[in-house]
């Protein structure tokens, strides 16, 4: 009887001591992980170019912004290939709280099918980056179809509890393709509206619309950009539609339009990081349509 008693106590004691080792390893790495996630203040801005544009699409914008910023934003470019592999260039500087990350695609043709594929590819790049940098929050700027890619990413892939997009700016993104009337909804717009509930309700969205004449920016009809309201309005915290006219308001010029850069600096980039250096301002009227 005594022997069994001792054996029982001994076995339990040994089991507990052995368990202590993996427990210790696990808790240490678990807490380190939690600390990392809790303490990263890094809020990267993802830039997504439109169709037929490469990862170098925003180089001009970055140059302007960095020439005016107190601390320069480091730039990392990711190109997602057709076989789901990633090609990196550039790097994120340690301690940079607001790095720019451009995500471009080898297949950058126009069309709904490509946009959906690009959303999937964006997600692959995004997860790879999140594993490395563990950012809780991020922002997004999408030019043309790039804005649609970010929208599909939010609806179909993003878990806002893990990674929350706080601000999104779309530049001339055609939510209703090339339709000039909102009464005919394309399949793409219908799909975006169907899954709008998946978008985080704390998101702030700015939709920038350029006009060359009174109906389009040379490529995308006004109505198609404005159709974004059916996706975001009453779903997100704030949806603001902005119209830019005048010089460089043509669709492809939008990213280099100084008024657009102003809007990006004011709304997307932390305004405290900007110096007061004046840039020559070409007179343009900006119509704010808040909702």
């Amino acid at each position: 009887m005594k022997k069994i008693k001792r054996l029982l106590f001994g076995a339990i004691f040994i089991a507990l001591v052995i368990l202590l080792i993996p427990t210790n390893t696990w808790i240490k790495s678990n807490v380190k992980n939690q600390e990392l996630r809790h303490n990263t203040r890094m809020v990267p801005i993802f830039w997504v170019p439109g169709s037929s544009a490469t990862v170098n699409r925003f180089d001009g914008v970055f140059k302007t912004i960095n020439s005016e910023a107190k601390s320069k934003h480091s730039i990392l470019k990711v190109k997602v290939m057709k076989d789901n592999t990633l090609k990196y260039s550039g790097s994120i500087r340690p301690g940079d709280q607001q790095p720019f990350i451009v995500v471009g695609f080898e297949d950058n043709s126009d069309g709904y099918e490509t946009i959906k594929k690009e959303a999937k590819w964006f997600n692959i790049a995004f997860n790879d980056l999140d594993e490395k940098y563990q950012f809780g929050k991020f922002e997004g700027v999408g030019h043309s179809n790039g804005g649609l890619v970010l929208s599909f990413f939010l609806e179909d892939y993003n878990d806002s509890n893990q990674n929350q997009m706080t601000k999104l700016m779309t530049l001339g993104s055609p939510y209703n393709s090339y339709e000039t009337s909102t009464s005919t909804k394309t399949q793409m717009l219908t799909d975006l509206i169907d899954s709008r509930k998946n978008i985080d309700s704390n998101l702030i969205v700015y939709s920038v619309l350029g006009t060359e004449n009174y109906s389009n920016d040379g490529i995308v009809p006004e109505e198609s950009v404005q159709a974004g309201k059916y996706v975001f309005q009453k779903q997100v915290k704030q949806y603001t539609q902005l119209t830019v006219t005048g010089v460089n308001a043509q669709h492809s010029d939008l990213p280099s339009n100084s008024q657009v850069i102003d809007l990006i600096e004011k709304n997307i980039i932390d305004s405290s990081s900007k110096t007061n250096k004046n840039r020559p301002n070409n007179a343009q009227d900006v119509k704010h349509k808040d909702s």
Binding site: L16, L20, I27, K28, V31, Q34
Partner: peptide, 25 residues
């Protein structure tokens, strides 16, 4: 202060909750 998973042995709870403090064990 740290969260403790469900079904942790009672005498390990302090150890886990303190990020592996031997004193707590």
């Amino acid at each position: 202060v740290y969260q403790i998973p469900n079904g942790t042995p009672g005498i390990f709870m302090g150890f886990i909750g303190t990020n592996g403090s031997v004193q707590a064990l």
